[in-house]
Amino acid sequence: MKAAVIVFPGSNCDRDCAVGVERSTGAKVEMVWHGDAELPKGLDLIVLPGGFSYGDYLRCGAMASQSPVMKAVVKAANDGVPTLGVCNGFQILCESHLLPGALLRNEKLKYICKPVDLEIVNGNTRFTAAFGERRTARMTIGNGEGNFFGDEDLLDRLEGEGQVVFRYANENPNGSARNIAGIVNAKGNVLGMMPHPDRAFEAELGSADGAVLFKSVLG
């Protein structure tokens, strides 16, 4: 199994993602610089990590969506390669139109960093299959702009089509529409989520639920 973690200037969870994927699945992970126009061949997973790509200039993820590597990522994702965007990676997926909707400033304006309980709304995606019958997970969020927004039609469609994968279970930390914490595209191969599986891949980190996600997609 082979995965690539894309490194943008200002990414700060790229190492976490690489270590998380490696330790959870044994997959070989290559770091790919944002200026590269091509991805390694034969990828089983592309990860867009968290951080503050390009200093969050203009809008979170906006500049990163225009970087050379994203043309290759968009093409690979459209060809069906599983693609995971965590936190800033989720914002980049939305800005690249690989996922619908957008992420706004948190409702209370504060940057929030804490563990959250998640409801696994759709356990049949390639990212959640290994959770089996489990319908809860615990991971950490760390974001200032994690407030998912979409118009009512989009939200109805996401819910109706099973594209809402994770919801905040007990409290909605950032004002996200319909408590949404993570969504997949219609094809099911692109997942964007604000909680960090890369900060929850072994018990010592407080939760190993992120490892289950990595195993689902690379198992």
Binding site: L58, R59, A62, Q66, C94, P100, G101, A102, F149, G150
Partner: peptide, 8 residues
């Protein structure tokens, strides 16, 4: 294409 995100 860039300066505005017309979703929001």
């Amino acid at each position: 294409k860039l300066l505005a995100n017309t979703v929001i």
